[in-house]
Nucleic acid binder design. Sequence first.
DNA 1: CAAAATTATATTGCGTCCAATTAAATTATG
DNA 2: CATAATTTAATTGGACGCAATATAATTTTG
Lengths: 164, 164
Amino acid sequence: MNNDSDKRKDDLKDGDALALGQQLCFAVYSVAHAFNRTYKPLLDKFGLTYPQYLVLLALWQKDKMTVKGIGEELGLDSGTLSPLLKRLETAGFVSRIRDKSDERQVIITLTPKGVGLKTDAFGILMEIGKATGCSMEEAAALRSALHDLNRHLDENPQDQSLVR
Amino acid sequence: MNNDSDKRKDDLKDGDALALGQQLCFAVYSVAHAFNRTYKPLLDKFGLTYPQYLVLLALWQKDKMTVKGIGEELGLDSGTLSPLLKRLETAGFVSRIRDKSDERQVIITLTPKGVGLKTDAFGILMEIGKATGCSMEEAAALRSALHDLNRHLDENPQDQSLVR
DNA sequence: CAAAATTATATTGCGTCCAATTAAATTATG
DNA sequence: CATAATTTAATTGGACGCAATATAATTTTG
């Protein structure tokens, strides 16, 4: 059923706030995919996926972390990491050894092959740097803005409707 | 303090360029996950996932798109969209009808239920806006920077190392 | 027109992701 | 010190995301 005010519903002053192009979340979503596409051919040479590469980045900073420790660094849980780490182990980049003093924990350690890959990572870093088209300063500024955004989103009070 | 030669082993000029915190890609990756976590409780109320919500956003802008058309809007292929759209159909948000004039194409159309959800989407938009902690201007600036980055990454010449 | 090439969608397989559950080990408590 | 509560990983199931392949419809070309 029509009336003469049909059109008004979607003429909000600023165009349509629900347009994909106006959504910050979609911009982030798209860039995340774009990074993935850019990394893929570089990481394929080593048989790595991007999340696997992130785990190696974490281990190059601090070797011998537990699964939980890696999860905290990357924001991933054991549901993601357990199978991922098994694949890294099968590929020979890390070892998984249960902590003798606390058998609940599994210590992830870089193998020599895993350590050796760090050298190649600088090449990847360079390629990605070029691909972004950002200067160091631009990249730093963008990173900073994203860190702030991340902090805000994570501080977001969880859904209160279910909290007694 | 220690002997000044101690720290030389890993001082590649600017600290460690491979640190997770210094990687723009990881900042983007983390924010994408953070957005997902923020959206989840809001979308759960409607039984939607975030990618499904993106499809609806696209259809609210332009209804009756083909699978390919939606894929171009969102940067997704049929491997992702075919099952996703079936779930949206099963949930009653869209219909999938093969184009009579070109039976290769499937036209995705919003059902009344799918159209009706647009009203609720404004509420979600508001919640997300609050959660970002960004002003309109900050969000617009960040979006713009991300669009530039996206463009650069997608323009990145494909791996030339295999091309002779 | 018939064969070949192209296009649009669907399917399969693998690797994330996350929620929920399970199992084992450790710590806290009565 | 025995049991309850907590902690850590692993597992399971559902949903992306993408590469590779398959299938059917359309267009191109010889």
